[in-house]
């Protein structure tokens, strides 16, 4: 009941919420975060299609899941890195790799024209552009 009485106006609520968000943003800033960006990838626009290329060393086809809609794709997968049994460790730089990312493209893609292959630890996904979103050239005619 009292809480209802002393409730601040909504605008203050919004403000404190914003403040919390800003604080959350900066608290993450100071913490050392490695590999936040995840695996390295390239995206190309090859006029008829898009091509996404991601470095995923040690990942197999069965470790990966690709979901596609006309707005983009979502790629999920992970690899484990384990020390072989009975071995002592001198150096460990290779890290467990996780990819869980959605990619959107400047124009809609045709979900029927998507292929994904992984070779030598590199995932390549090609996505055909939807026909009705491709630029169409129109011949300009002179009105004689």
């Amino acid at each position: 009941m009292f809480t209802q009485l002393f409730r601040r106006p909504d605008s203050y609520d919004d403000l404190s919420q914003l403040q919390r968000q800003v604080e959350a943003l900066f608290s993450g800033w100071t913490r050392p975060q490695r590999h936040v960006a995840g695996p390295a990838f390239d995206v190309f626009d090859e006029s008829e299609r898009y091509r996404l290329v991601a470095d995923l060393p040690g990942m197999r086809a069965e470790d990966l899941e690709v979901e596609v809609t006309e707005d983009g794709i979502t790629v999920r997968g992970s690899r484990k890195v384990e020390a072989p049994e009975g071995f002592s460790v001198h150096r460990r730089e290779r890290e467990p790799l996780t990819i869980a990312r959605s990619f959107t493209f400047p124009s809609k893609v045709d979900p029927e024209q998507v292929t994904a292959t992984i070779q030598q630890g590199v995932l390549t996904i090609t996505l055909g552009k939807r026909a009705d979103t491709k630029p169409r050239s129109i011949t300009v005619q002179s009105a004689a």
Binding site: A40, F41, D42, V43, F44, E46, S47, Y50, V53
Partner: peptide, 8 residues
Amino acid sequence: GEGLALGR
């Protein structure tokens, strides 16, 4: 093609 993102 045109590189939209070049992270590698």
